[in-house]
Every structure is written in structure tokens, then in C-alpha cells.
Simulated assay, not measured.
Amino acid sequence: MNLHDRSILLTGAAGGIGRSLALQLAGHSARLTLVGRSGETLEEVAALVRERGSQAHVVAADLTEPGAAATVVAAAQERFGNIDVLINNAGNVRAGRLDAIEESEVIAQVTLNLTAPILLTRAALPALRAGGEGLVVNISSGIGLVAMPFYTTYAATKAGIAHFGEALRRELYGEGVHVLTVFPGATSTPMMASSKAGPEHGFQYESPDDVATATLAGIADDSLTVIRGGETRSQMIETNRTDPAAVDRLLAGRKDALEQAVAGHSSL
């Protein structure tokens, strides 16, 4: 897909990977609808987008609220007339033992990471189809490919959004809408600020700019997936497929230290 002058609806645009995507998309003279909870922070991103020669429209919305999907889609269409690309990037996390986190924290992750993007995609599909060359980009996680202890609910939502995208891609095959799923590894974003997990726990960090660059390259190539994490991640994915018990044993050796490192990890 050529992104020049495309109308792009981007969620979670205020920071992290979303902010990096917005600024890199600005280099394509895109028309961006930036969605997030903080209107003030979104306006700061929008100003940077405009400085780079693209248009930006800010929609402050809580995607977990009833009716939010329809409201956001309508706002994008009212401002730009169409929607060519939907990027489902907004997300949250709460790590810890499943029986130690609150029920509300489980629900919050499922609602924002899985339910909200499904409903937003559903609402945007008529507009995406209308252009004849629509695209849905779902930002999953490496934990959606190889599940990690103490991230049970997060892993469920990220695996869920990955399979949602795969199923939707096949459902829409030949109908003018493509679906790309992106699997970032550990990324230096505000969402990770409360985690103390590092390389010694198996978390190798990269910048949100690198994830955004890889995502745009995947869009340009009509890729099905973009998987970050390099050779180490690739090897673990393969081992998890062929010998998952070996991954169990590997992670068991890190379990106690990992539990302590991520006990306070929350973006809720």
C-alpha cells in the first residue's frame, strides 16, 4: 500500500508506538485521525504531525465506553470523508499472578486490548471496503506468540487479537481489505515504565521508532505479519511450537526473579 494522502485512523496515538507511528506517517502526507484518552497530549502529537506537512484530527475518547467505536469512526469520516487504514494500537497491561490481580484489572485488559479493537474494526469495515484498498493493522505482542508467566490475561488478549486478525484476513480475502498483525517485543514505552524486567529476565528492549519503522515497512510490502525480537525471538517461537515443555523449563529457571520484576507492572 502507498500511504500517501491516505486517511488513517490510529488509536493509542498519544505516546509510545502510537506516537511514533503518527510522526512517521506524517512523512507520507497522510490524513490522520488520532485517538486516545488525553486530548491535551494528542494535540501535542497533532501539532508535530502538522509541522511535518500532514493533516491531523484529534478525537479524545475512551474506547472501552459503549458506543465509542461508532463515535470515533463517524468523527474520522466527518473530518476526512473516508477511512483507508485502521491501526488498532491502544492497549494496557497488568502483570502479576492471576489470583493476585483484581477482577477489574482482568476486565480492563480484555476490554481495551481485545473487545475495543474488534468493535472498532467492525464499525470501520464499511468505510474500509468502500475505498477498495483498505487495511487493518493490529498491534499484538510477542507475548501473543510465546506466552509469559505473570502475563496471563495480557497474553490471552494479545493472542486473541492476533487470531482475530488472521481470521478477519481470511474472511475478507479478495474483498479489498487486508489485515496486518504486528508483534512487538519489549518496547521502551510509557506502558513499560513500571516494569523492572530486563535482559536478565529475557526482555530485550527496542525503541518505539524501530517498531513503527518495521510496521510501515510491513504495510508497504503487504506483509501478513511483522515479528520483532530478532533471532532470539524467532528461536523461542520455533521451540515453543516444537517443544513447548522446553520453554516451560527455561522460564521456570527465571520465574522467581521475573515475578518480582513485574509485580508492579501496570499501565491501568
Rank of each mutant, 00 (worst) to 15 (best):
D84K: 00
L98N: 03
L34M: 13
G230S: 06
A162G: 06
M148N: 08
A47M: 14
R37Y: 10
G264P: 12
R50M: 04
A123W: 08
A116H: 03
A159S: 11
V73I: 12
I143C: 03
A108N: 11
L145I: 08
S140T: 06
I227F: 09
N88A: 09
A74E: 15
L258D: 10
G134E: 07
A61F: 01
K196Q: 15
E238M: 15
A155Y: 10
V179I: 01
V106P: 08
T213I: 11
A263W: 01
E40D: 08
G53E: 06
D222C: 13
G174S: 08
R94L: 02
A76V: 04
Q260T: 15
T215L: 14
I101T: 09
T232G: 09
S223L: 03
N92L: 07
Y205L: 10
F183W: 08
L180G: 05
A61T: 13
R228Q: 11
A68D: 12
S38Y: 05
T41P: 00
A162S: 15
A155I: 02
G142W: 02
H201P: 04
R19K: 15
A74M: 03
E43I: 00
G218L: 07
S195A: 13
A14C: 02
V45D: 09
T71W: 03
A186Q: 14
L128R: 03
A155F: 04
V226F: 14
D209P: 05
R249G: 00
L168M: 03
K196C: 07
G144V: 08
S223N: 04
L250F: 11
A252R: 14
L3S: 03
A68W: 01
E44T: 10
A263H: 07
A162N: 11
I83R: 02
T121I: 01
V73M: 13
D5V: 06
E259P: 10
E175T: 14
Y154N: 00
A108D: 07
S188P: 05
T11D: 11
T239L: 12
A100K: 04
E43C: 08
G185Q: 01
D5E: 14
A13G: 09
R52V: 02
G91D: 00
V136M: 06
E78D: 14
I83W: 06
E105H: 14
A197D: 02
P66Y: 05
A75L: 11
P244Y: 07
E43Y: 02
A75N: 09
E166L: 00
P208V: 09
S194C: 05
I237N: 14
E78G: 12
R170Y: 14
I143D: 07
E65G: 01
A257W: 10
A245K: 14
L10S: 12
V211Y: 05
N89D: 13
D62P: 07
E43N: 06
Q260F: 09
Q109R: 08
K255T: 10
F203P: 07
E105T: 07
R50Q: 13
G144S: 12
I237A: 13
E206N: 13
Q109D: 05
T181C: 00
A69G: 06
G160Q: 03
A130M: 13
A127Y: 01
G39A: 14
R122H: 10
T242L: 06
A252P: 00
R228A: 09
F150C: 10
T189Q: 15
A14Y: 06
L119V: 03
D84E: 00
A46R: 04
L268W: 02
G15R: 15
G165I: 14
L250M: 14
G132N: 11
Q235M: 01
